[in-house]
Design a protein around this nucleic acid. Structure first.
Lengths: 189, 189
DNA sequence: GCACCATACTCAAGAAAATGACTAATCACA
DNA sequence: TGTGATTAGTCATTTTCTTGAGTATGGTGC
C-alpha cells in the first residue's frame, strides 16, 4: 500500500474532490508523491469501499456535480498504523542518472541539454516551494514557526522537497559543466 | 521502459550473470535504481529475446553453471536512443515523508524513531559511497579525475547518491529534533 | 457563433514493479 | 552429519503505475 496513504495524508487537511485532489497533488503533496487523476479517482473509490474515507455529493448549478471526500476515523486509524510500521529505505530512481552513468560511453550532447533543462525546472520548483513555505509559516520566522506552529507537517515535507531540488539543480549544473569541459578538451586534443 | 536501461547501463561495464548483476545493483547502480533478483532475471530474459544483450553459458564445476550477459550493438543503440529521448522529472516518493506530513496530527514517537534509523542508514551509505568514490578516482583528486579520467559516468552518479544521502541524513536529524522539542514542550505545557 | 479551455469524472488495457515460494548444488562449521 | 550460508536461478501472482480514450457541462475569447 502506498498511494493510499499519500491520499489519506492529503485529505487530512480538508475535504477535496478527486479533481481538486489531483490539483493539490501537484503542489504540496507532490514533493513526495506523484499521481495522475485516474489513479486518484481509483484510489478514492477503493478507500471509500473500505470505509477509510467518506464521500458526499455536492450539487452544483454552474459546474458539474462533485463528490467531496474526507478521512473517517477508520482512515485515521489506518494512517496511524501506517506511521508506526517500518518503511523501506528511499532511493532516487531517475532516468537522467542512468543517462549520466553512460554519458561518457555514448553521446554526451543530448545529456548535457537535458541536465540544463532539469536545472531550470529545479530552479522553478525551488521558487515555488520557497513561496509555499513563506505562505505556510505566515509572519513567523522558520525557527519560531517550527517550535509553535500548529500544523508543521506540510512545512517539514516541503523543506525536504526544497533541499532535494536545490541539490538536484546544483548537481545538474556541475555535471553539465564537467561534461562540457571534457567535450571541448576532447575536441581540441 | 525503465529497468531495462538501468540493466543495459550496468552491463556496459562488464559481463555479468543475473546473480552478479543483482549484487552489483546494490552498490553502484543502486544509487539510481533498485531491483530484486527476480526482476533482473526477467529483464535479462526479455533483453536477450530482443537481442539487446547476448548471454553465454559458463560451465562451472564447483558451482552451478551460470549465464554471463553482455550488451550487443543493438543494445548500445537502444541506450543511445534512450539517452537522447526526454525523461520525466524525478521526484522523491518516500513513505517516511508521508509519515512526517501527518506526524503532528497523529503519533510522533514512532516517526521520530524512524527518522533516527533513517539518519543512521544514510550515514552508513555515505561512508560506503565515500569509499566507492575514492576507489573509482584512484590516486587523482576529484577535479583532476573528472577532467581526465576515462570512465567518469559511475563517479558522477555516485556523487548524486552521496549528496542525496547527506541531504537525507541532515533532514532526518533536523526533523527528529524539531519533533522531539515539540513533544517535550507539549508535555510540559 | 464557434473553438477552446476548465470542471468533473469514467472505462479499459497494458506495462512495470513488487512479493512469495521454490529448486538444486556446493561449501564451511561445529 | 546436518545446519546454514552462498551461488545460481525459476515460476506464479498480485499490486501499482501508466497510457489513451471518452462523456458531459459551462464559461471565455475572438
Amino acid at each position: 500500500m502506498a498511494l493510499r496513504h499519500a491520499v489519506l495524508a492529503a485529505l487530512l487537511d480538508g475535504e477535496y474532490s478527486g479533481y481538486q485532489l489531483a490539483k493539490a497533488f501537484d503542489i504540496g503533496v507532490a514533493n513526495f508523491w506523484h499521481a495522475l487523476p485516474q489513479q486518484l479517482y481509483a484510489e478514492l473509490a477503493k478507500l471509500e469501499k473500505e470505509g477509510l474515507v467518506a464521500g458526499r455529493q455536492v450539487v452544483q448549478e454552474t459546474r458539474p456535480n462533485k463528490r467531496l471526500f474526507q478521512v473517517t476515523d477508520a482512515g485515521r486509524a489506518e494512517l496511524e498504523k501506517f506511521a508506526a510500521a517500518v518503511s523501506k529505505p528511499s532511493f532516487i530512481r531517475d532516468d537522467l542518472l542512468v543517462k549520466v552513468q553512460v554519458a561518457d560511453r555514448i553521446g554526451t550532447a543530448s545529456v548535457i541539454e537535458q541536465l540544463q533543462e532539469r536545472a531550470s525546472a529545479a530552479e522553478a520548483k525551488i521558487e515555488l516551494l520557497g513561496k509555499l513555505l513563506r505562505q505556510l509559516r505566515g509572519d513567523a520566522d522558520e525557527e519560531e514557526f517550527l517550535r509553535r506552529g500548529e500544523r508543521i507537517g506540510p512545512y517539514l515535507t516541503c523543506l525536504r522537497g526544497l533541499a532535494f531540488e536545490q541539490e538536484h539543480r546544483d548537481w545538474c549544473r556541475r555535471i553539465a559543466a564537467v561534461l562540457r569541459e571534457r567535450q571541448s578538451t576532447h575536441a581540441e586534443g
